[in-house]
Amino acid sequence: MTNTVYSSGLQINSSQSKGDILIVDDQPDNLRLLSGLLSDRGYDVRAVMSGSAALMGAKAQPPDLILLDINMPGMDGYNVCQHLKANPLTGDIPVIFISALNEVLDKVKAFEVGGVDYITKPFQEEEVFARIQTQLSLRQMQRILQAQNDHLQQTQAELRRLLIQEQELNGRIEKMSALEERNRIARDIHDSLGHSLVALNIQMETALTLWKDAPQKAYEFLVEAKQLGSQALNAVRQSVTDMRADPLQGELLEVAIATLTHEFHYTTGIAPECHIEMSLPFSNSVNTAVYRIVQEGLTNICKHAEATIVHLQIQTTPTELSLTLQDNGRGFCINGNQTGFGLQGMRERVLALAGQLEITSELGNGCKITAKFPRMTV
């Protein structure tokens, strides 16, 4: 059942509305005619008889569309439309002007003040519905586009926020990794330099003891002491260089690893079998840790393993980077080597990046190093 109320305004409600339409006309007969036609077609209709009432109604409850008569006393349709478009609350409401055939319709002015279309009296029903539905459809599409644009902007803002958080997190990780690397190198300097200095001191004391009775022997001990001193100095210089420099030097991890394996091949005559798949990028801190582990691992193999075969595999997935370095050398008792051969440094690097490290080795059965680094997320 449709309820119709006429006074300073007209309200018509429908159970299934196709849209909310505000009709503005100073002629009651026109209001009744248009209201009846539109309500029968399922539109919600509000009707007012003056421009001031139209402005108040549109502000209080913005309609989906306004049908606006041009010739009205006090405030004509052009003036009403200008006020509507000047208000942010009502500026995007489409306005269709109404004009009688015997009235002068200034079409240019109608569009200049913000009108989107016009209808002439007497009304042709199908034309009225077609023009109204066209504007309502455009209005609905504009709302959908606006909602999608708002959602897109919110998504972009959220992505920017997450990106900033990720950059800040990566920055903190880089600083922590750099600090851990410096601490590790400092410990290495302390350990290696301490050992060299002890040996150097023994050589010097022995040389002093033999200086009078066996000068030739003393000289030999002094030569060894000189060599130990040079080795210690070179070790310190190399450690300081490592502490100051980026080991990757701006190169891709694959390129830096290739350089390591070439140097290893040149030194040992062993060409490592490499399988490297780095299709997914990881942070520089992870790449640096991987490089250092491979570097230390190859160094240990070169110095201690007496291996003939070396396998290296690096692979990335959406969730982690995995590294495996294995040799067929003489191996060692893992329980008795928790800190030696750079193993402690490897553990520290992996743990600093929330990774996992597994080292398996037995005497006579080589050594296998497996490290996994998770992809850091915010």
Rank of each mutant, 00 (worst) to 15 (best):
K303I: 05
M243D: 09
V240Q: 08
F332M: 08
I301W: 00
M243N: 04
H275F: 06
R244S: 08
S283M: 07
Q313M: 09
F332Q: 03
T316S: 12
K303A: 04
T317H: 01
I270Q: 00
K303G: 00
T288Q: 15
D327L: 11
Q326H: 12
L323T: 07
E254Y: 02
A307T: 07
Y291A: 05
T268V: 09
T299R: 09
N284K: 14
S322M: 11
G297C: 11
Q315D: 13
E320H: 15
T261H: 04
V240L: 15
L280W: 06
P281N: 11
T316K: 00
L298Y: 10
H304G: 05
I334K: 10
D242W: 05
Q315I: 10
A256N: 06
T308C: 04
N284M: 06
I293V: 15
N328A: 07
M278E: 11
I257H: 06
L323W: 09
F264V: 03
L252Q: 13
H265P: 00
H304D: 11
N335Q: 10
G329H: 04
S239Q: 12
G331S: 14
E320Y: 11
I257A: 02
P318Y: 14
P272T: 07
A271Y: 03
E296I: 14
E251D: 13
Q295L: 05
T259N: 10
A307M: 01
T317R: 01
E306G: 07
G297D: 06
Q238D: 13
E254G: 06
E296K: 04
H275N: 14
M243E: 09
P318F: 13
T241P: 00
H262S: 13
Y291G: 09
I293Y: 11
Y266S: 13
R244D: 11
T299N: 09
I334V: 15
S239K: 12
T288P: 00
T259G: 07
R244C: 03
V255C: 05
E277I: 07
T316A: 03
I257T: 08
M278K: 08
H304C: 03
N300V: 10
Q249E: 15
S279Q: 09
T241M: 05
D242V: 01
F264G: 02
T268F: 09
S283A: 12
A256K: 10
P281H: 10
N328L: 08
D327P: 07
A245L: 13
G331H: 12
E254S: 14
I293K: 03
T319I: 04
L252T: 10
A256Y: 09
C302R: 13
S322E: 12
A271W: 10
L325E: 02
V290H: 06
